[in-house]
Amino acid sequence: MSTMLQTEKLEYSYPALEEGEEQTRALRGVDLTIEKGSFVVVLGHNGSGKSTLAKHFNAILLPMGGKVWVEGMDTVDETRLLDIRRRVGMVFQNPDNQIVSNVVEEDVAFAPENLGVPTEEIRRRVDDALGAVGMSEFARHAPHLLSGGQKQRIAIAGVIAMEPACIVLDEATAMLDPVGRQEVLTTARRLNREKRITIVLITHHMNEAEDADRVIVMDNGKIAMDGTPQEVFARVEEIEAIGLTVPDTVQLLYDLRRNGVDVPLSALTVDECADAVAAALK
């Protein structure tokens, strides 16, 4: 597998708001390599640096120390800016603030229009992108009448229309209700599986990490943990020390183990957990 995103000793600080105040060090040396085609979830509480990291992946922010490469392109290289942005699409938190047009299909067409794609090709891409997120029937609708989850799917379609290799969802589920969140997650998983698009999902909902290929936990501007969901969530004490919680399934297994029941900590989903508990009690 080849490398999609890579950072080396990445550092970033936000300037102080007022004189005399310290600047905020958001990233303190992040070394990270994300493979093409993987589904990576980045967890962390507010202020852990996870969103700052995400904004380096398509040159919205540029490193103050260290390097970021997108498919081998250095993000500091201004001549490659459009190429970088075309390869790594971003979906943000607030669905209302990333929709440009008052007709769904016009909005999805925005990026290819900017890239100077010929008209017939734009049409094909828009239809494909809307199909990929399951929103074809809403092509002529006004976005402000859609639900939060639908708006985020439109935003995803707008990114797919650039035919990117990677989509970064920067807390894209934070403002949605459970139904909307599920819509976005299912869409992201399908794109990963069917189109082999690399997905980087930034979130603080532990449950969204359940079936990721890899979970990265950020804390205090650094990578605190990195591994499969099973590996990461098994480290219950560390996760709690950071101020995050583990899924209730893992919490249950952890508590049972402390009481001497022999269950593994790696059973994340409801069914796996029930299997493990049932087996231990038999």
């Binding site: 398509n58 919205i60 459009l82 942005r85 075309r86 699409g89 971003m90 943000f92 603030n97 990333q98 440009v100 299909e105 016009e106 067409a109 925005f110 990026a111 290819p112 229009e113 900017n114 890239l115 100077g116 794609v117 010929p118 008209t119 734009i122 049409r123 828009v126 707008g158 990114v159 650039m162």
Partner: peptide
């Protein structure tokens, strides 16, 4: 920011749906 992420760079070279 969202517009920039979608490669907006003014009217130059823009095509239309």
């Amino acid at each position: 920011v969202a517009m920039e992420c979608r490669c907006y760079h003014g009217g130059e070279g823009r095509t239309k749906l």
